[in-house]
Design a protein around this nucleic acid. Sequence first.
DNA 1: ACTGGATATTGACCTCTGTCAATATTTATC
DNA 2: GATAAATATTGACAGAGGTCAATATCCAGT
Lengths: 119, 119
Amino acid sequence: MSKSLIELTPVEAVACCTPMTREPMTGAQAERVSALLKALADPVRLQLLSLVASHEGGEACVCDLSEAFDLSQPTISHHLKVLHQSGLLDRSKRGVWVYYKVRADVLDSLGKLISSAGA
Amino acid sequence: MSKSLIELTPVEAVACCTPMTREPMTGAQAERVSALLKALADPVRLQLLSLVASHEGGEACVCDLSEAFDLSQPTISHHLKVLHQSGLLDRSKRGVWVYYKVRADVLDSLGKLISSAGA
DNA sequence: ACTGGATATTGACCTCTGTCAATATTTATC
DNA sequence: GATAAATATTGACAGAGGTCAATATCCAGT
């Protein structure tokens, strides 16, 4: 038996798709992939992701991230939650600090899928 | 003298960025790249793009695209306009028909940038 | 020119989302 | 356990965005 759509991991949601030049996406596939893209399609979240990605090990503490923005702490927390819940960032708590880490596999698959729409 | 931010083409907007694992994006870079991602981050537009991409030559007539959706003609037209104005699709009119074509270079650059956030 | 078909624009409606202030939760330290 | 610091949650608000009906524009053929 196959997993229901809801249970699909983000990797599976993206890995499902053949190159876009070979076959159009179904509505359901587009729905799941666009959920990932929505999470990325915000300037603050994109910069947050790049900050995390450029840290050693692709991991960074929230305390390091907040300083880069002129935004309230709840707002940064909100954006990190979106990135985490979409499956683009992993979250781990150590003591009082929370670390976010890039899901390299997800970002790699997603990037390849987008590139596949070109030649 | 360098171009103002407004004048940057979509390709330039994306090609500007070093891999995300090497250097975090600036606010301005994130702003421009997220504009492209916003255009992609809709299920209908993503499926539209995949339909165009999977046609011969990466080009398709609007007449071929509308049928795949249960949406009004103005809505499809609106989504195509968003994809075109963001720089993801080229537009050309031949007689009464309008053809949209994928900007392979833009999609390739964008995909590589996203993948660069992984290892 | 007139008619018909293909696509675009306008204006309105409703939902979704980014932001903040205030408050809550968790954890280390005293 | 009380306090302080780091992060998350809640609730409210304003602005952005997807959708449609109605209308406009553009082009081919008669």
